[in-house]
């Protein structure tokens, strides 16, 4: 595609788009520092809602549970997603490959209510017939999150693997490294940035999920989105704005770190043309 200076048209399209995307977030952040109880009337600068947020044991507990689940789910999803990507990119054809790719791509678009309901019914049926899982909680949320995050991770890693020249892996074999060693010494280091962004993606998806977690959670495993949801259902609260600001801050930092990593690896791992 032609590259160069943006035309006036392009600039105005982008301005409108980005205004639409960022204005609500900006408003959210501004009003998190509002003194007033009313979310929409400015009454002076204050950190009071942040204080209240950090004194709310329910929110803090839910945040802790969500973080634990997100870290564990993202890690497992990266392992499964990497395996799935290798299967799709490097293994050639095998029986049931179509079914395999369907099961990888379908969760990307599956409405959450369906995924949530179906997993809950599975856990109930398993509990009835196998006696496991005995009760629903962090474990069942973890399983559910791993399942749908794997699909997203697989997409990220697959596109990186496709760019990777096959002959680099062949060269490693040719020089005497057996396949498993090729994977750990050559493939993995090269696709590491993709694994990193896959992990971050899975982490945010898990941290963000309300619907599926609501279906498969049990007593005592209220996640952060569930806590937020029940709080905003009661009505608007500036405390949520404070939380939102923190989440946005964390996400921005994470994205910048990921971006920095990606840029750096782009500089050091892609073989550029003759110089």
């Amino acid at each position: 595609m032609q590259t160069g200076k943006l035309s006036t048209w392009s600039k105005s399209f982008l301005s409108v788009g980005f205004f639409f995307l960022y204005a609500p977030i900006l408003i959210l952040v501004i009003f998190s520092f509002n003194k007033s109880d009313l979310v929409t009337v400015w009454a002076g600068f204050s950190f009071k809602w942040y204080g209240e947020l950090f004194r709310d044991p329910q929110m803090l507990g839910a945040a802790w549970i969500s973080l634990k689940i997100a870290v564990l789910a993202a890690s497992a999803a990266v392992v499964l997603g990497t395996m799935a990507s290798i299967v799709m990119v490097r293994m050639g054809d095998f029986k049931g490959k179509t079914a395999f790719t369907s099961m990888i791509t379908a969760p990307l678009v599956m409405p959450e209510v369906i995924t949530g309901l179906s997993l809950l019914l599975l856990f109930v049926a398993m509990g009835q017939s196998l006696g496991w899982p005995g009760e629903r909680g962090m474990l069942t949320i973890w399983i559910a999150h791993v399942t749908f995050c794997t699909a997203f991770v697989a997409v990220v890693i697959t596109s990186r693997l496709q760019e990777l020249d096959d002959s680099i892996e062949e060269a490693a074999q040719d020089l005497g490294a057996p396949p498993w060693k090729v994977f750990f010494l050559v493939t993995l280091p090269i696709i590491a940035p993709a694994l990193m962004s896959g992990w971050l993606l899975a982490f945010t998806l898990s941290l963000d999920d309300l619907v599926i977690a609501s279906f498969v959670s049990g007593p005592g495993s209220t996640t952060l989105p569930m806590a937020v949801f029940s709080s905003v259902r009661m009505g608007i609260s500036p405390q949520i704005n404070a939380l939102a600001t923190l989440v946005i801050l964390a996400a921005t930092i994470a994205v910048f770190i990921a971006w920095w990593f990606a840029q750096r690896s782009l500089k050091s791992t892609t073989v550029v043309g003759d110089d």
Binding site: G17, F18, L21, Y22, P24, I25, I27, L28, F31, L38, V39, T40, L200, T204, L207, D208, L210, P225, V228, F229, V232, I236, I240, L243, A244, V247, I248, A251, T252, A254, V255, W259
Partner: peptide
């Protein structure tokens, strides 16, 4: 990155932001 950034923040919170914008005394 700017297009993707909002989707890295909470979905729920982004929808919640619109409640404050759209409501009667919003």
């Amino acid at each position: 990155m700017m297009v993707m950034l909002p989707s890295w923040t909470s979905f729920l919170i982004r929808i919640y932001a619109w409640v404050g914008i759209l409501k009667n005394n919003g």
